Amino acid sequence: MTSDATATESTRVEFRHEPAQSRYSLRINEETVGFADYTVTGTDVLFTHVEVDPARRGENLASRLVEQALDDVRTRTELTVVPVCPYVVRWIDKHAEYQDLLTRGR
């Protein structure tokens, strides 16, 4: 499990990799407020769905979650990222520094 905890005065943000559930999660003050689901197939990791609590939208949480998940894939594996979720497709399109994940190992 990987996590990145950031504490502020009253807010604790934690990113978790939950391999048994094929999921990265984002928790704020111990409450899950977002997740990114994936499936591993051969040498590919397919990001299939990203969701953030509707009450927390507009806080840039989905972007932070995707960035943390992709950073984890980059450092922990040699898998090629296949963005299936439209949000992940758009996110990678906007962040050129992550596009190498789409072709590595090919």
Score class of each variant (00 low, 15 high):
Ser3Gly: 14
Ala55Lys: 07
Ile28Glu: 10
Thr103Ala: 11
Ala96Gln: 11
Pro19Val: 06
Glu31Leu: 14
Pro19Tyr: 03
Ala20Leu: 10
Val81Lys: 01
Asp37Val: 04
Ala7His: 15
Thr75Asn: 13
Phe47Tyr: 08
Thr77Ile: 07
Leu70Ser: 06
Val13Tyr: 12
Thr75Asp: 15
Leu46Gln: 10
Pro19Arg: 02
Thr77Glu: 03
Phe15Cys: 10
Val40Ala: 09
Asn60Thr: 14
Arg16Asp: 14
Arg57Cys: 14
Tyr98Phe: 01
Ser25Trp: 06
His17Ala: 12
Arg64Met: 12
Leu26Asn: 03
Asp53Cys: 07
Thr41Gly: 08
Arg64Cys: 08
Ile28Met: 12
Trp91Glu: 01
Ile28Thr: 07
Gly34Gln: 00
Tyr38Ile: 00
Val33Ile: 13
Arg74His: 14
Leu26Cys: 05
Thr39Arg: 14
Leu65Ile: 10
Trp91Ile: 02
Val81His: 01
Tyr24Trp: 08
Val88Met: 06
Glu31Met: 13
Ala20Cys: 06
Thr75Pro: 09
Gly105Ala: 03
Thr6Asn: 12
Leu46Glu: 06
Val73Glu: 00
Pro54Ala: 07
Gly58Trp: 10
Thr41Ser: 12
Arg27Val: 09
Thr39Pro: 00
Arg27Ile: 07
Glu14Val: 15
Phe47Leu: 05
Thr6Lys: 12
Thr103Asn: 01
Val82Glu: 05
Glu51Met: 07
Asp100Arg: 03
Thr75Glu: 15
Arg74Tyr: 15
Gly58Ala: 08
Arg90Met: 09
Leu79Gln: 09
Pro83Val: 08
Arg12Ala: 12
Leu102Thr: 02
Asp4Asn: 14
Ser3Arg: 15
Phe15Thr: 14
Leu102Val: 05
Tyr24Asn: 04
Glu51Gly: 07
Ala96Ser: 13
Thr32Gln: 13
Trp91Ala: 00
Thr6Ala: 11
Ile92Gly: 02
Asp4His: 15
Ser63Cys: 02
Arg104Leu: 08
Val81Leu: 04
Trp91Pro: 07
Gly105Met: 04
Asp100Phe: 05
Val88Asn: 02
Arg57Val: 11
Leu79Val: 07
His49Met: 03
Asn60Phe: 12
Val13Arg: 14
His95Leu: 05
Ala36Ile: 06
Thr39Tyr: 10
Arg64Leu: 11
Thr6Arg: 12
Arg12Val: 15
Ala96Arg: 02
